[in-house]
Nucleic acid binder design. Structure first.
Length: 127
DNA sequence: ATTCTGACA
DNA sequence: TGTCAGGA
């Protein structure tokens, strides 16, 4: 599929998809026309990229682990070098700290809203 | 109509 | 990231 379709199927703009390629996150084939040609696997890859990006990982970190990205339907990623493993452990720790900060922020909002019930009960139904 | 690269009042 | 230019 070309960039337009991947964009529709992932909800990511073509601009962002080209940017991901610049960052080495995606490496689509090229047609003789120069148009990028993506595979179905890229749909899942893009979702993974978005998730990791949203979690605060930089493109460099994502690029390293992309080949090991657990795509839907496949098992655990294969063995990774100890150095990379260490980097992932740090990212995980960072995310955990981030979660704590978010929980603290939510607690503040709960207090302001005068919410005694568990947050899960007052969660606003999202879109 | 789509996509491409490069660039930024 | 959006968006415009100038081409294919």
């Amino acid at each position: 599929m070309r960039i337009g379709e991947l964009a529709r199927r992932t909800g990511v703009t073509p601009r962002a998809l080209r940017y991901y390629e610049e960052q080495g996150l995606l490496t689509p084939e090229r047609r003789p026309s120069g148009y990028r040609e993506y595979g179905d696997r890229d749909v899942d890859a893009v979702h993974g990229i978005r998730t990791l990006l949203a979690a605060g990982l930089n493109s460099a970190a994502i690029a390293e682990i992309l080949p090991g990205l657990p795509l839907p339907g496949q098992r655990q990623a294969g063995p990774t070098c100890p150095e990379l493993l260490d980097g992932l452990a740090r990212e995980r720790a960072r995310i955990t700290r981030q979660m704590d900060e978010l929980a603290a922020a939510r607690a503040i909002l709960d207090a302001i809203m005068g919410a005694e019930a568990p947050s899960e009960v007052i969660r606003t139904p999202r879109a």
